[in-house]
């Protein structure tokens, strides 16, 4: 496993409530691993804790990256080990140019311009339109997310955590993002994808379902998605959207059984 969480519990800042409770799962190197769950289930908290942001400290448990215990490492130390995070809503910063931002995490800054252009092309941004821009309000939400992704890719990390990369994007753009995820995978980077959308998650090899802060299942993604639908009581939605025209996935009886297990029909 490239990333392993063991019994991670994350309290609120004041310690009075638990956001994520005793969660354990692993992420295989080279995979796309989706963490799904409804809004408020603790997915983003989990992502920030894995990345080591201030104020996101587990009260118990361990996080391992490539076998190294990173639980007490700083954000910078974790990034230097080869992991990064692309934010759900990246900041707009006046004066910071797109090329300078993309180059921030590059270890080797020779042929900088070529590398920046390459990163922009991976995220389907025309380089000539962005080389003189800044990451300020003049970029649309989708453009800013792509620049964030380009900066993460330019680092050539082993693990990229994508926090809700789909939020605020229309369907056509989402389709494009799915292609970008596959490009990242082909560059031998592992993706930990935080999402609550099944269409985004379907690009994943594996998944983990977090429900009200608790770990429910980690498995191949379709099985995780089925369990998500069962917990949410979305049987018709599940049959209609997830497994439509896909007889190889699950048969009706299996779907019925999972829904019964979760007490929904």
């Amino acid at each position: 496993m490239l990333l392993e969480l063991k019994d991670i519990t994350i309290p609120t800042e004041d310690g009075k409530c638990v956001i994520v409770n005793n969660v354990s799962f692993g992420v295989k190197e080279g995979s796309i691993h989706a963490v799904i769950g409804p809004n408020g289930s603790g997915k983003s908290t989990l992502a920030y804790t894995i990345m080591g942001l201030k104020m996101y400290n587990p009260s118990q448990g361990k996080i391992y990256f490539d076998g190294i215990d990173i639980t007490n490492m700083t954000l910078t130390e974790r990034a230097k080990l080869g992991m990064t995070l692309a934010w759900q809503e990246p900041a707009r910063i006046d004066g910071l140019t797109v090329p300078n931002y993309i180059a921030l995490g590059m270890k080797d800054k020779t042929n900088l311009k070529e590398k920046v252009i390459e990163a922009l092309e991976i995220v389907n941004l025309e380089p000539e339109r962005y080389l003189t821009r800044t990451i300020d309000e003049s970029l649309s939400g989708g453009e800013r997310k792509r620049v964030e992704l380009a900066a993460a890719i330019a680092m050539r990390p082993r693990l990229i955590i994508l926090d809700e990369p789909d939020s605020g994007l229309d369907m056509i753009v989402i389709e494009d993002f799915l292609n970008i995820f596959n490009k990242i995978k082909n560059l031998e980077m592992t993706i930990l994808l935080i999402t609550h959308r099944e269409d985004i998650g379907m690009v994943a090899d594996y998944g983990t379902l977090i429900w009200r802060g608790n770990h429910i299942i980690t498995d191949e993604f379709p099985k995780v998605m089925l369990r998500y639908c069962a917990k949410a009581g979305l049987k018709e939605f599940c049959k209609r959207t997830l497994f439509k025209n896909d007889g190889t996935c699950f048969d009706e009886d299996y779907i019925d059984r999972i829904f019964r297990e979760e007490g929904s029909s």
Binding site: M51, L53, K54, T74, L75, T76, A79, K80, T84, L85, W87, P90, A91, I93, D94, G95, L96, N100, L104, G105, K107, T134, E148, A151, M155
Partner: peptide
Amino acid sequence: DEIMAKGLNEEEATEILIEAMLR
């Protein structure tokens, strides 16, 4: 955080933001 997630420490991140702000 966004800059530090690229492998820079807080001091380096602050320098970059000052440079950007005053650009």
